[in-house]
Amino acid sequence: MSNDKKLPDIGTEQDPKVKKQKAKAYEEYAKQFTPKPKYAANGLKAFVVGGLICCGAFAVQNWLMDFMKLEEKEAGTWVTVLLVCLAQLLTGLGWFDSLAKFAGAGCIVPITGFANAMVSPAIEYKAEGPVLGVGAKLFSVAGPVLVCGITASVIAGIIQVFR
């Protein structure tokens, strides 16, 4: 019989200060039961895949410069466009998430991750129509990236004025 057993005093605290302390203690406690990510393997995969994507981009850029006689800047722009389109196509085919599951930041941090972040919610909310579904959701994950990036560029421009 367990009639007089106490109940655990987790999560019943009302005082916000004590609550915060207890939450922290519980988080630490819960951590010991949670398996750790495979840091080394994940890091290696991210490094290699990320490096390979960049090398591929570099190879294409060189090819564009050598054979299509493009300037470096123009070739670089074309490479960006190609990478974006490729990542979006892979997202549409449903392959990008499998790649990201393997490579993690290796394909999220290159511009491919940005392209995937645009298309994935747009496909997802397609049922809500071409305007508020696809049109609006295209920016639900990537919007913040554009907003923060462009704001940063505006600030950079302002700083440049005073230089």
């Binding site: 840091y39 995969k45 991210a46 490094f47 994507i53 993690g104 930041a105 941090v109 940005f114 990537a142």
Partner: peptide, 23 residues
């Protein structure tokens, strides 16, 4: 390229930052 991605992976694994925030 690999090193920049590695930094991203370390952020993903050791912090609670989600992919959009890392971007």
């Amino acid at each position: 390229g690999g090193a920049i991605c590695l930094i991203g992976q370390i952020l993903l694994d050791t912090t609670k930052l989600t992919a959009p925030r890392i971007l």
